[in-house]
Computed example of a mutant assay.
Amino acid sequence: MANDHEQRLEQLEISLAHATHTIDELNQVVVGQGKQIDRLTRLVGNMTEQVDELMENVLPGHQGEKPPHY
């Protein structure tokens, strides 16, 4: 009976170690994706500003309005 409990405890410890490792790996992925999202958000913001500036230079007073069919 004691041997059965020891085996079950050992299996639980192994499972916990695997789960902890998986959680750590997933956390690294999430952190990396968060950094990438931040970088892409900054790039999109910069590009939006550039497009707005170009539109203002090409068509002064242009508000970037959508055509009536939208």
Rank of each mutant, 00 (worst) to 15 (best):
E53V: 01
E13N: 12
H21Y: 13
T48C: 01
L26K: 13
Q63T: 09
L40D: 09
E13L: 10
N57S: 12
R42M: 11
Q28G: 15
G32T: 02
H62C: 12
P60I: 03
P68Y: 09
T41Q: 08
M55K: 09
L12H: 03
V31I: 10
L16H: 15
K66I: 12
L26N: 04
K35P: 00
Q36V: 03
P60K: 02
L16A: 14
R42N: 11
G32A: 04
P60F: 01
E6M: 12
K66Y: 13
G61Q: 05
L12F: 07
M1C: 05
T22V: 03
G32M: 01
K66P: 00
N3V: 13
R8F: 11
Q11D: 14
T20R: 15
H5Q: 10
N27L: 14
A17Q: 10
M55F: 01
I37Q: 06
G61L: 03
V44F: 05
E13W: 06
R39E: 09
H21C: 08
H69K: 07
D38E: 11
Q33S: 05
Q7D: 04
G45N: 07
H69M: 08
Q50I: 10
T22N: 08
A2G: 01
Q63L: 13
Q36W: 00
I37R: 05
Q33V: 02
L54Y: 04
E56K: 07
P67W: 06
V30M: 09
V51N: 03
L12Q: 06
L12V: 04
H69D: 14
T20P: 00
G61M: 01
L40C: 11
P67I: 06
N27S: 14
Q63G: 08
Q33G: 01
M1F: 02
A17F: 06
L54H: 04
N57R: 09
D24W: 05
L16P: 02
A19M: 11
E6R: 12
P68A: 12
D52S: 05
H18G: 02
L40T: 14
T48E: 07
A2T: 01
E56C: 04
Q50L: 14
I14K: 13
N27V: 11
H21G: 06
D24H: 13
P68I: 06
E10Y: 00
R39T: 09
L9F: 06
V29T: 14
Y70H: 13
K66W: 14
E49P: 00
V44I: 11
D52F: 02
Q36E: 09
K66S: 12
D38N: 03
D4L: 10
E6V: 10
S15R: 10
R8W: 07
E49V: 06
L16I: 14
V58G: 00
L26A: 05
V58M: 08
M47P: 01
A19E: 15
A19H: 15
M55A: 04
G61C: 02
L16Y: 14
